[in-house]
Write a protein that binds this DNA or RNA. Structure first.
Lengths: 195, 195
DNA sequence: GCTAGATTTGAACGATCGTTCAAGACATAA
DNA sequence: TTATGTCTTGAACGATCGTTCAAATCTAGC
């Protein structure tokens, strides 16, 4: 990758961090200028305006999440174990690792209205991409014998996606108690495993 | 209630709608001035600044949610049936009735950072109030024989709260498919009922 | 070294933000 | 009617918003 392409990606990574942490409206272009160490003209020449930059940030975030999921699955002993570790990291480590503990796509869907219909649609699309990734891993778990032959992986992926949203949101509510969160995650995977 | 007190409450209701629909940052005081049909001086004299008004909106929202829950339980044949109907209304009707389909308190926790630590704390506090209400209803369900004697109502309330967060967030993702949502709710209450 | 094209700079624009406050409108009691 | 205290008005403030663009700087080919 060329140096210019590299710095381009670094800049997007910085913007993604900011948008993720503060949301779309609370992040100002001046915040981004400072984080990128770039002047407004350069940013607008490279990325377009705030909305275009946010869209790139959403995609960068999703690509990163997909890579994390694959890494978890590869590191774990089995597809289902990897999936569970991915969830644990997202929910428990969320408060420290991730800017707010929440998924950036869910934050976006929560914050934005039809006033930014394109960004809303992009976040929805990317969430379904991640859900599809879940389904693929679950399918592999099924093939590995971790799930019964009759399991509906698409439905389980939907359940897992919904559950992950709830877990991360609840984790941000709940001041103490990682054990409570772990118990909820255990319950979730017990239910998935039974199906 | 005096007429002045009534108009005061009406004004807060309007502000709550706006804040709920658009979030804290995207709602401007001028939006609120227009919705309330009041001039800035009056608003600042009556409610204080934007943050104080938002805090009142959070409380008004919560009081309304509590009333809805009690109404659902009263209308239904049993505590558990009322609880389920409350969830169904929140998740399925959410997209139409509620400004964004999401709980205002969860939206707040998702949007705000430590920059507004007091508002964040207030939203967290109110969410735990609602969770306590869930626990009370579940306790009544237990007493009515809808749950086993060994059920831990506090834990079930936590589970329900988390589940509701996930369901409402997922509902905003999912363009079509009320049936999918209904199925997820059925699953949730099947699990609660089994405990 | 010189020139032409691409890139970066940072001051500046108009709009809008949350908030203030002197001045006007209104209500109440004498 | 007049005086007095309360509430309302809307223009205005300084700050910050997303964005633009002429000028300065850098880069590459001859």
């Amino acid at each position: 990758m060329s140096a210019i392409k590299q710095s381009h990606q670094d800049a997007i990574r910085k913007a993604t961090e900011l948008f993720w942490a503060k949301g779309f409206h609370a992040t100002s272009m001046r915040n981004i200028q400072q984080a990128m160490d770039m002047r407004p003209g350069s940013i607008y020449a490279s990325f377009g305006g705030k909305e275009a930059l946010f869209k790139e940030a959403l995609n960068a975030y999703t690509a990163n999440s997909q890579a994390s999921l694959q890494a978890s699955v590869a590191a774990a002993g089995s597809p289902l174990a990897g999936l569970k570790q991915f969830v644990i990291d997202a929910v428990i480590g969320g408060a420290e690792n991730a800017p707010s503990g929440l998924c950036m796509l869910v934050k976006t869907i929560s914050e934005l209205t039809d006033e930014h219909a394109d960004l809303l649609a992009e976040a929805r699309r990317l969430l379904s991409v991640l859900e599809d990734d879940f389904a693929v891993v679950l399918q592999r778990a099924k093939e590995a014998g971790e799930l019964s032959e009759s399991s509906d992986c698409t439905r389980l992926a939907r359940y897992l996606q919904m559950q992950l949203m709830g877990l991360r949101a609840y984790a941000r509510t709940n001041a103490g108690g990682d054990e409570q969160l772990r118990a909820l995650i255990d319950d979730t995977f017990a239910i998935i495993g039974k199906s």
